[in-house]
Write a protein that binds this DNA or RNA. Sequence first.
DNA 1: TTTATATTTGCAACTTAGTTGCATTTATAT
DNA 2: ATATAAATGCAACTAAGTTGCAAATATAAA
Lengths: 127, 127
Amino acid sequence: MGIIRKTESVGALLNEFKNGSNAISAITLVKRLESKFNKTTVYRVLDKLEDDGVLHSFMGDKGIKWYAKCDGCSKSEHVDLHPHFQCVACGKIDCVAVDVTIPKIPNREITASQILIQGTCEGCTSK
Amino acid sequence: MGIIRKTESVGALLNEFKNGSNAISAITLVKRLESKFNKTTVYRVLDKLEDDGVLHSFMGDKGIKWYAKCDGCSKSEHVDLHPHFQCVACGKIDCVAVDVTIPKIPNREITASQILIQGTCEGCTSK
DNA sequence: TTTATATTTGCAACTTAGTTGCATTTATAT
DNA sequence: ATATAAATGCAACTAAGTTGCAAATATAAA
C-alpha cells in the first residue's frame, strides 16, 4: 500500500531526490531528517514511495539499502533493472543508463538482476 | 592475513564447501556449526579463507553475506567477477559461469562488478 | 620431548541497520 | 465540524556481524 496522504514527511523525502540521479542510502536519509522525523517514519515512507513506483531500492556493497528516483516505473511495474555505479573512493552511488545483457542460463528462468558496477568516479579519478 | 594453522574450524568450514558450487550464507554457516564453534570464530575463519583466495564473498539480496568456493582465485588476485544466481523461490544462490559484459561508462573507471541474477531454478520451476 | 610464542578461540558486550506494536496525532472525506 | 483511516513517534526489539580481552592450542625451536 503506497502513499495515500500528502504529508510533510513525504514532501521532505521527495525533496531529497529532487535533483540529480544520485542514489541515497536509507540510513543517510534517516540521519539527514532525524531532527524532523522519526527513523521509523523515514523507513516507512521510503517503503511506500517504492510501492508507488516513485523510488526504487537496491542493496549497496556493505549490505545497506539505497534508494533512487525511478525513471519510467509505475505502481504496477518497476522497470528499474538498470545497473548502479558505486565509486569505491567516495562511496557515492548513482544509476547508470547502460544496458547490460544477461545471457540465458540453462534450466533457470531469469526474472531480474541486480548489477552493482564498482570503480572510481570522475571526481575521484582526477584526485 | 590468511590462514596460518590448520585448525578444526578451518577443516569444518572447508568441508561445508567441499561438494557443489552452491554459495552458503555466513549466518547459515554460523548456525550449522554453532554446536562446535563460536560465531566469532566462524566469521573470522571465513574472512581468512577469503583472504587466502579459497572462498569469495558477496552480498545477497537481503543484505546478508554469502560465501562460495573460489575457482581460479589466489591470495593476490580474486578473479571471482562471475555473476551469482539466486532462486527467488527457494533462496539458494550459486555461482554461474556465464560472461556478462559490462559496457564502458563515460568518466568512470570500472574495476569490479557485483551481479546478482534473480529468477527460478530448475527445481522450483517444475513445481 | 618439552618449551616458548604467536595464532586461534570463546565469551560477553557492543554496533549498525532496520522492524514491530501500540498509543497518539493528523489529513481528508463526509 | 466531525468521523475515521492513515500517518507518526516512541520504545523496545531483531538480525547480522564486530570488537576486546583472557584462555587455549598449534607449531617452531631448543
